[in-house]
Structures are given as C-alpha cells and as structure tokens.
C-alpha cells in the first residue's frame, strides 16, 4: 500500500504531504501551523519541541514523520484544551513559573507525561521528569513547585 503518512493530530485524523524522512517538528510547525511546538536545537537536546506520541513524551525534532504513521500526536495546542492543562496552567501561574515562555509548552507536556505515569511524584522524580527540557530563565524551582502543586490540586485527574 502506498500513499501518505496519516496520524491523529490533537484528536483529529490528518494526512501529511511531508516526506517520511521529514522532521515531525517541521511538519507540525510548517504544514499544520502548530507553532506552540518550539525549535530550540534540532538535535534532541533541549525539549522545546516536546510532543506526546501515543501519550509518551518525545522530542519532535528527532522524530521522522514516517515513524508516526497511525500514531496519536498531541501538541500544546491540543493539550491546552484539557482539564489537566487547566490545573497545570493554574499551578504554573501560581509560582510565576513562566518567564520567557519558550520552553514552557514542552515543559507542560513533560509535566503531563510525568504525572500520567506517576500522579504523585517526589521532587527528585519531578526533576528527572523534566530533565530533558532545558530552561534558562527560572532555575527550574518554580516549575518543580508548580508540578508538585498540580499533582495535589489535580488529585484524581491523573
């Protein structure tokens, strides 16, 4: 069977015109105009381009389009419509955890990926959970505290 790469993007079935070897990051930003997915390095080193693929955190810059055929892909644009996002956003706001904001969409998805596997993480587990997402502004504390708070407030959501 030959055709196009299809996948479920933010709960909607889509078909991409991209090549299988294209970076998922570029496809999401350019073809689907989902610019909440940020590009910080193009080598899987900063996490700004984090998305969820079948619920699992991935750096979309080092994912080839061909590898996600029929997968569920969630970007911040899709995730920001969820209840869980609301809880996380409120917690991030409480600690003024958003500074320049460039790492934040990725950081929020890393928070989701962590909490969905571990609803009540310890501080060390949170730090590990976001260890692939570089932030140069906050020193990470506010983000760590926000995730702790979200875990408390969102009891039962994760």
């Amino acid at each position: 069977m030959s055709g196009k790469i299809t996948f479920i993007l933010n709960n909607e079935k889509v078909e991409s015109n991209g090549k299988p070897s294209d970076r998922l990051l570029d496809v999401l930003r350019n073809e689907f105009e989902l610019t909440g997915v940020k590009c910080g390095c193009k080598e899987g080193e900063c996490g700004a381009c984090s998305v969820l693929i079948d619920g699992v955190l991935a750096n979309s810059c080092v994912v080839a389009l061909g590898s996600i055929h029929n997968c569920h892909v969630t970007t911040i644009e899709g995730y920001s419509k969820t209840k869980r996002f609301e809880v996380l956003s409120k917690a991030y706001a409480n600690f003024s955890a958003v500074q320049c904001g460039f790492c934040i969409p990725g950081m929020v998805l890393a928070s989701e990926a962590l909490l969905s596997h571990n609803p009540h993480p310890t501080e060390a587990e949170i730090r590990e959970g976001i260890s692939g997402n570089l932030c140069r502004c906050t020193g990470y504390n506010a983000i760590v505290h926000a995730i702790q708070k979200a875990a408390e407030e969102g009891n039962g959501l994760w």
Partner: peptide, 22 residues
C-alpha cells in the same frame, strides 16, 4: 534501518528509511 531516530534525525537528511519502530 530506523529504530528510534534520536541519532539519525540529528542530521535529518532525506534518506530512504526502513521504519522498524513498530
């Protein structure tokens, strides 16, 4: 052969890939 892509995609050349990840 493409498994995880995390090393291959750093260069992101237009290669013919055999996707093994599933």
């Amino acid at each position: 052969p493409y498994a995880g892509g995390t090393d291959l995609m750093v260069d992101a050349e237009d290669h013919a890939y055999l996707f093994l990840n599933k």
